[in-house]
Amino acid sequence: MGAFMHRRRLAIIVMVAACGAPAIAGAQSPCGEPPGQPDEPVRHAAERLLALADALGGGVADEAFRTRVGRARSVDALAAAAEHLVTLRIHVNPESRVKLRVVHPVGDLVVGRPRPLLVAIVNEAGVTAPLSLSCRDRSLGAARPADFCRVTLRDDGLSAPRLGGAALEWKLADITVAAPGRWEVGLEADVGQGTQDLGFRSTADVLLRGVRGTGGEGGD
């Protein structure tokens, strides 16, 4: 994971140490975040993260989350605050090899209704190529595009497929299942030709369940 993870470990150590230290009234938050305004890039990242969390819906951007994000003074602290919201984690190594992990279950999906997923991207290569996500079906042998599932990266004012080159960024993806029942889908990520990881770590196989919506939601 290189320098980013090293920094991240350091940040966690610093936070733990601060939480364990005697509290000095007015000098430090309970979580050890230093007082004062965050740096501009961190502030922007925090605003963006809050907007993405709002777009996830379901009330995930609750007060506790907003407080943690508001107190964050580093991108690492933001990452920790958003950890529980992340479904897919993508790591682009210095050679632009992509590794994809499903870090939290996708859960049940209402048939025909897109479910937004928060995608965290650790970009050690600093590439600015578009990130591509796709669904594969291996049930018939060689992987082929899945006709029962679709995943797309949002391309709107909030999220865009092209990476920004930052060491860590978040994006929104929408996943949709087309029919009820359980399905195994192979999610696949790349950042351009030849960036799929050796040993196909750029794929993650997930068991999904499509459920019928109520009151005319979705459809199959």
Partner: peptide, 10 residues
Amino acid sequence: ERQPLLAATT
């Protein structure tokens, strides 16, 4: 279910 079982078997 047939699809996930075959995919997992592949």
